[in-house]
Computed example of a mutant assay.
Amino acid sequence: MAFFFTILPYLDPKRRLDSSSVNFQKLRLAMVAMLGGLLAYGLYMGLHPGTTSRGITVLLGLFLAFMGNYLTTVQPNYFVGIRTPWTLESPTVWARTHRIGGMVFCLVGVLLIGLALIVPARQMNLVPVGLILLTTAFCYGYSYFVFRQEEQRRNVV
């Protein structure tokens, strides 16, 4: 994963992704830490039968909360962020979508952590997947909504 993030900026067609920026380094560290944490917990679960997946849900919630915070600062590019045709076309749509989408991802992450600590593990099997799908669908729809609003403003003026 670290190697992938090293070559990723060179694959950006418009060279908008700056590998030396602090935000990009935070993303790189978060991805490597999340994957390392998931692998370590998976190994722990394999060595200790009967362990619940509660830890994985908490790790996922922490990651989503971090990513939500990160999304509010990411600049338009082709690899990181909420990349719909509308956000890639307009910097205004990109900024508004990432501001709201970041808040939603952060809230979903905190909600997942809370649910993982309160709800029994057996009942949490599909909750993370459902919340992530709903959040993704919301961000996609919101980016289209903002794009249409901006398009209407341009036509009026």
Rank of each mutant, 00 (worst) to 15 (best):
V110Y: 02
P128N: 09
G109W: 10
S90E: 04
Y70H: 11
F105I: 05
H98Y: 07
V146I: 12
A137L: 15
T72V: 13
L134W: 03
Q75Y: 09
T92W: 13
Y70L: 03
P120D: 08
G101T: 13
G102C: 01
L107F: 15
L133H: 11
V129H: 15
V108Q: 06
L88M: 13
R154N: 04
Q149A: 09
L88D: 03
T92L: 05
G68Q: 08
P91D: 06
L134T: 00
N69T: 12
Q75S: 13
R148M: 02
L134E: 02
Y140T: 12
P76N: 02
A137I: 15
S90K: 00
Q152R: 15
A65T: 00
Y144S: 04
N77Q: 09
H98R: 02
R122T: 14
T135A: 09
A116W: 05
P85W: 15
Q152G: 08
M67P: 11
R148T: 07
G114D: 03
C139Q: 05
Q149T: 08
Y142T: 07
R99Y: 00
F66H: 06
Q149N: 13
V127K: 11
F66W: 10
Q123R: 15
L126W: 13
L117T: 12
V129S: 08
Y140R: 04
V110C: 03
L126D: 10
R99G: 01
Y144M: 08
S90T: 00
Q75A: 15
N125K: 14
L131E: 11
F105M: 01
G109Q: 10
P120Q: 05
M103T: 09
A95H: 09
V146D: 03
F105P: 03
F145H: 14
L117W: 15
L112N: 09
R153T: 14
L71K: 07
W86Q: 07
L88N: 02
R96L: 07
V129R: 12
N125M: 14
F147C: 01
L111Y: 07
I132D: 11
N77Y: 06
F105G: 02
P120F: 14
L88V: 10
W86L: 00
V127D: 05
P128V: 05
G81I: 03
I118S: 02
L117C: 05
P128C: 05
E150A: 09
A137R: 12
L112P: 10
L115R: 10
R96D: 05
T136E: 10
F66S: 06
F147L: 00
N155P: 11
A65E: 14
E151M: 06
G114R: 12
T92G: 01
L115P: 14
G81Q: 00
T136F: 14
V129D: 06
L133Q: 11
F79C: 02
T136N: 11
Y142S: 01
Y144R: 12
V146H: 07
G141M: 06
T135L: 02
V119C: 14
V104H: 04
V146Q: 02
